[in-house]
Design a protein around this nucleic acid. Structure first.
Lengths: 240, 240
DNA sequence: CGTAAGGTTGAATATGTTCAACTTGGGTGG
DNA sequence: CCACCCAAGTTGAACATATTCAACCTTACG
């Protein structure tokens, strides 16, 4: 373990709290740590890694296409595995920090070897992959068929599920990303995000701190859930 | 190997051609086959599996939300691994056939064990996961920021990359799915798909068989590539 | 031959975007 | 400490464009 502390001088206790990590046995953790490196990042920074584990903060894969169009294709939070090994596929994508955060940089080869030696590592890896793939699929559904209002509420619930959010009140959401990034993630313009949130406010379905726009309180979760699922009746149409 | 032929009475030669399969060693193949079952499906059929390998045909994960909105979240073709083990996440999604096809149904536990014993299985699995995840990310980008025209061209290129398509001319695409499914996949309505294709036809960028609407020929791949990437100049604006 | 489903087309509508102006909050430097 | 600046966010009006709705054509199939 001396080797571990040398290579990862300051493993923050936050690592111990990530979902992926808690699935692992002590031996597996030690083996993974022995080859890992810690990486801190800040907002706007391009993160140049192939493979790693999110410890804290928020990161995203950002695509750029012509005309200044920007899209956050996938959001990463604590416990997510980031895999960009086949980056060649699409040169226009990059991993970018959306705030201060840190991650464990892993070697793919070492990780694969570890997964073959320890059943729990492979199982945890697969769980993660399935979870993150499920999120991508849900998000595709959101983008493909949902209205801006539905998308915003869906994102609120998605952010509500983040590990960090579980610490607070069940109905309080402290937005971990900017509104313009929510827009880039939901395929809308900042103006549209603003209008959608206003409609929710005016309908009395959410509340927002007077001064801190980061905090959003869900007032009527059941109705909001219906809206997010796209199965809402005319509840909001009246207030239009 | 007698056991194999018993459990999988008629392993079609098509299996041997799938991308995933060709990455495996003979021993790995035998071990996987020994626990596999063959499953045929037809268009519109719900495919009830947890884990499997696409052999031929097309399948998709279909989401339904209120108001009759239907979305094909992910398309699967020969060589794709299908993993629905954590289906609980979203009860509204189902795996559905988009035509006749077949797949190998695998046991997750057996597959995981196999991946731990054979490095090539784990590597091939990870390659597949990375590939399919990359497709999901690209598709999210398409849905989030691209115009209908750009989406259609992007889909044409995506379908062009399918293993089955590689057999034909490099510029010929035999659409493996219906237009209404293209619409459900690209988050548009069938009318919009039709109009976008017409614009491409009128601009002389693609050609289509007079009677078989399934065949589409790319006349100007470089320009189409630019359109798909969202970096096209005004090429098409004139022809509007 | 008749039906049903997929696909196409046109006109009217609904709605997200664009553009511009404005407000707000956080940071910097004098 | 205050003035200043900048990015983020908001709002309204005009605009662009995908959807809706309806009619119609085509093909496959019993």
């Amino acid at each position: 373990m001396t080797d571990v502390t040398e290579r990862v001088p300051k493993v923050p206790p936050l690592v111990e709290m990530t979902e992926f990590w808690t699935d692992l046995s002590p031996e597996s953790r030690a083996e993974i740590l022995s080859e890992a490196q810690l990486l801190d990042f800040a907002a706007g920074e391009t993160i140049e890694i192939d493979f790693g584990l999110m410890i804290s903060g928020t990161a995203a894969i950002e695509y750029m296409v012509g005309n200044g169009r920007r899209c956050l294709v996938e959001l990463f939070h604590s416990g997510d595995l980031i895999d960009l090994c086949r980056r060649e596929r699409r040169p226009q994508g990059r991993l970018v920090g959306l705030g201060y955060g840190s991650m464990l940089v892993l070697s793919v080869a070492d990780f694969e070897a570890c997964a073959r030696h320890h059943a729990d590592v492979l199982a945890a890896y697969r769980r993660r992959v399935e979870d993150q793939t499920g999120r991508l699929r849900d998000h595709i559904n959101d983008l493909a068929v949902k209205t801006p209002l539905e998308r915003i509420v869906a994102v609120l619930f998605e952010l509500r599920r983040w590990p960090e959010a579980r610490l607070g009140e069940a109905t309080d959401i402290i937005l971990p990303i900017l509104r313009k990034d929510i827009a880039a993630y939901t395929g809308m313009k900042p103006e549209t995000v603003s209008r959608a949130l206003r409609r929710l406010l005016e309908a009395g379905l959410i509340r927002s701190g007077a001064h801190d726009r980061e905090t959003i309180t869900l007032i009527d979760p059941p109705v909001l859930r219906q809206i997010a699922n796209g199965s809402a009746s005319k509840t909001l149409e009246e207030g239009r």
